[in-house]
Amino acid sequence: MLLASFFGVVMGLVLGLTGAGGGILAVPALVLGLGWSMTTAAPVALFAVGSAAAVGAIDGLRHGLVRYRAALLIALLGAMFSPLGIYFAHRLPEKVLMILFSLLMVMVAARMLRRERKDQGPSDHGHANWGQKNCMLDQQTGRFSWTAKCTATLAALGAVTGVVSGLLGVGGGFLIVPAFKQLTDVQMRGIIATSLMVISLISAIGVIGALHAGVRIDGSGMAFIAASIVGMIIGRKLCARVPARALQVGFASICLAVSAYMLLRAGL
């Protein structure tokens, strides 16, 4: 119970600091730290990630940072495709799931280690010229211009996020955050807040699907979930004080180490 609480706090802390990556650590913590199977760990990880993300999303809504229409569209498509991921998760061998998760962690670590151009400007608006991004903010209203291209882009992101969420028990922030940076001109504060709202919605749908499939959450799982919420609150308070680059390098290093260990456990 104590170990589960510790892992939960760490996962929530990472989620609060980065807006992504919490689920990437949650599943290995439960599988490697507590000895759970992938199919048992996935819904608990989703529940914890979703609960912690909801706390951050509410804070983002209070400050007007969440692009809630975009978040709802992504979550809607995620809800439609999440059962597909859950279907395959219960039919693939445990070893295959561990290998897929390990490769996913390597991908996330590589993205974190890659240096990116810093966005400038104190506002939540980006500074890309019109047409450079798939989804652009109207500089007068501060809202997305909902073109067919923008709608299709966000819908596709939601579908992919839903499948991966159901399959591996991750919230999808590692997909949403870089996709928003690449495809929209929203600044990082708005990206993180929007990501947290999407994660909370998709995670809730995934948990409901898993519970419907017969998965149950025990006392250790509930302790992990409660501790993750505490970690999220701490992370949201510390995010302005932690150097972004140091956080990225540290998180990427942890991902690489855990992925290597999971590959070893899988027999590679």
Results as ranks from 00 to 15, higher is better:
residue 159 A to Y: 00
residue 166 G to N: 01
residue 164 V to L: 11
residue 216 R to C: 01
residue 172 G to A: 02
residue 185 D to H: 10
residue 192 I to N: 04
residue 219 G to A: 12
residue 210 A to E: 14
residue 220 S to A: 15
residue 231 G to V: 07
residue 200 S to T: 08
residue 177 V to G: 13
residue 214 G to M: 13
residue 191 I to Q: 02
residue 205 I to G: 06
residue 202 I to R: 11
residue 179 A to Q: 10
residue 206 G to I: 13
residue 205 I to N: 11
residue 219 G to P: 02
residue 172 G to V: 04
residue 233 I to H: 13
residue 228 S to Y: 06
residue 164 V to H: 00
residue 192 I to E: 04
residue 226 A to N: 06
residue 194 T to M: 01
residue 230 V to C: 10
residue 157 L to N: 06
residue 198 V to R: 08
residue 158 G to R: 00
residue 190 G to D: 04
residue 211 L to V: 15
residue 221 G to T: 03
residue 189 R to Y: 06
residue 238 L to W: 11
residue 211 L to H: 13
residue 218 D to S: 08
residue 184 T to A: 07
residue 216 R to N: 09
residue 157 L to H: 03
residue 179 A to G: 10
residue 230 V to H: 02
residue 209 G to A: 14
residue 182 Q to N: 11
residue 194 T to C: 03
residue 159 A to G: 04
residue 215 V to Q: 13
residue 168 L to C: 04
residue 226 A to I: 10
residue 235 G to L: 04
residue 193 A to W: 01
residue 174 F to E: 11
residue 174 F to I: 14
residue 227 A to Y: 02
residue 179 A to V: 13
residue 198 V to C: 15
residue 183 L to K: 13
residue 158 G to L: 00
residue 181 K to Q: 15
residue 202 I to D: 14
residue 179 A to L: 13
residue 156 A to F: 07
residue 232 M to S: 07
residue 156 A to D: 03
residue 167 L to H: 00
residue 195 S to V: 02
residue 229 I to N: 06
residue 209 G to K: 15
residue 205 I to M: 12
residue 179 A to D: 11
residue 161 T to I: 01
residue 176 I to R: 12
residue 186 V to W: 09
residue 160 V to C: 03
residue 218 D to G: 09
residue 214 G to K: 13
residue 163 V to T: 04
residue 161 T to Y: 00
residue 217 I to G: 09
residue 206 G to Y: 12
residue 165 S to T: 05
residue 230 V to R: 06
residue 211 L to R: 15
residue 230 V to D: 06
residue 215 V to P: 00
residue 191 I to F: 01
residue 231 G to Q: 06
residue 154 L to E: 00
residue 156 A to C: 06
residue 210 A to M: 13
residue 164 V to M: 07
residue 199 I to Y: 08
residue 225 I to E: 06
residue 160 V to M: 03
residue 224 F to R: 03
residue 176 I to M: 13
residue 212 H to D: 14
residue 219 G to Y: 09
residue 233 I to V: 15
residue 204 A to D: 09
residue 163 V to A: 01
residue 156 A to M: 08
residue 156 A to W: 06
residue 183 L to E: 12
residue 208 I to G: 14
residue 227 A to N: 02
residue 176 I to H: 10
residue 220 S to G: 15
residue 200 S to P: 08
residue 199 I to M: 13
residue 182 Q to P: 00
residue 223 A to F: 14
residue 166 G to S: 00
residue 154 L to M: 05
residue 200 S to F: 09
residue 191 I to G: 06
residue 232 M to I: 11
residue 177 V to E: 12
residue 230 V to P: 05
residue 159 A to H: 00
residue 161 T to W: 00
residue 154 L to V: 05
residue 235 G to V: 07
residue 234 I to V: 14
residue 184 T to R: 09
residue 217 I to E: 10
residue 234 I to R: 01
residue 166 G to P: 00
residue 210 A to R: 15
